[in-house]
């Protein structure tokens, strides 16, 4: 599994995303630039300029026509993927920590930071999936998180619920139509921030990563913790792999907590766990800073990770990755 190193960013990566076909990778970093890359060879397709601050988040719609970004310049922006044209800018009072399209691409969700008297909110806009259309300024829904600020959020299957992860280690379920809080459950240790939330392909369950050094697999309908993966380092990201029943966790000692610069010490590795048996299968080294985000190819043929070290590492899985099976899995496969 020889990685391709994407070294186009000048500062720490904050999020990396595959488009739905898996041929393009979008990456955002604290250097204010959005990059698009070909996933198979790591060639840079283009950049999107315009943001005035560090970027926190990126997402692409299912048809790979629209790209949404959010950052510390208190704006959420919509771009045309093909041309890099800025289509729309929404201004906010605080920075945008997370953006996500709904599964049908007709809604866009943004999570705003809590700061200077402004509470953290989850906002939703209806999106016209046409690049020439005028995008609305009207928020179709606004959820205020007064208990604990939301750090991550996303749409469930059929855009039925909005699931959000919070700073205090809880996960909540909102009705995506009314914004009503349906459930709020503490899944991680108290006051251990939920750092990432990524969906299974059919969005009936998702995985959360947390500073409490664990990742949890949670069902969408009742927020029941199905599986728990514990590691020895704070986690920044967790992803579910299609095809094989694995999860990939990324994290590492935050740069401010590391006393020595030894890469060995910081545990800057992507860790593979078996999704069902919750056992660690392997690790991938390479980054020399904490992993801020891991994303999996939608077809399950590879993954990429963005690190605090400013690099994106793109990996294509080898044959042994697909061949590996537990005895009981092989039994079933042979039935």
């Amino acid at each position: 599994m020889r990685p391709i190193l994407l070294s186009g960013h000048e500062r720490a990566l904050t999020q990396v995303k595959y488009n739905s076909d898996g041929d393009i990778i979008f990456s955002v970093s604290k250097d204010h630039v959005v990059c698009a890359w070909f996933s198979h060879n790591g060639e840079r397709l283009g950049t999107y300029h315009g943001h005035q601050g560090a970027l926190w988040t990126v997402d692409v719609d299912p048809t790979s026509t629209l790209l949404a970004t959010g950052g510390a310049d208190n704006t959420m922006r919509l771009w045309e993927v093909k041309t890099g044209k800025l289509l729309k800018t929404w201004d906010f009072a605080t920075s945008i920590k997370r953006v996500e399209f709904s599964p049908d691409g007709r809604q866009l969700l943004g999570v705003t930071e809590k700061r200077s008297g402004h509470l953290s909110t989850i906002v939703i806009y209806e999106i016209e999936p046409d690049v020439d259309a005028e995008q609305t300024n009207e928020q179709s829904l606004r959820i205020v998180c007064d208990e604990s600020k939301a750090t991550v959020a996303g749409f469930s299957y059929l855009s039925k619920f909005i699931i959000a992860g919070h700073e205090d280690g809880t996960v909540s379920q909102y009705d995506a139509k009314t914004g009503e809080l349906l459930l709020n459950i503490t899944v991680h240790e108290d006051d251990m921030q939920v750092t990432d939330l990524q969906w299974s392909p059919d969005r009936t369950y998702f995985i959360t990563a947390s500073k409490d050094k664990t990742a949890k697999l949670i069902s969408t309908n009742d927020l029941e913790v199905l599986k728990s993966y514990s590691t020895d380092t704070p986690l920044n990201s967790a992803a579910i792999t299609p095809v094989k029943d694995y999860v990939i966790l990324g994290g590492g000692q935050a740069a401010m907590d590391v006393t020595t610069t030894s890469a060995r010490q910081g545990k800057f590795e992507a860790r593979f766990y078996h999704k069902i048996f919750m056992e660690e299968i392997g690790r991938v080294r390479g980054h020399f800073g904490p992993l801020n985000y891991v994303a999996v190819h939608p077809k399950g043929t590879g993954y990429c990770s963005g690190g605090e070290d400013g690099y994106v590492r793109v990996h294509h899985f080898d044959k042994p990755y697909f061949d590996f099976m537990y005895e009981v899995e092989r039994e079933q496969a042979n039935l």
């Binding site: 739905s20 599964p103 059929l158 392909p201 059919d202 299609p242 095809v243 939608p298 077809k299 399950g300």
Partner: peptide, 10 residues
């Protein structure tokens, strides 16, 4: 009423 636009479990 969910159809599988993205094939389930890849």
């Amino acid at each position: 009423g969910y159809e599988e636009p993205v094939d389930a479990d890849g």
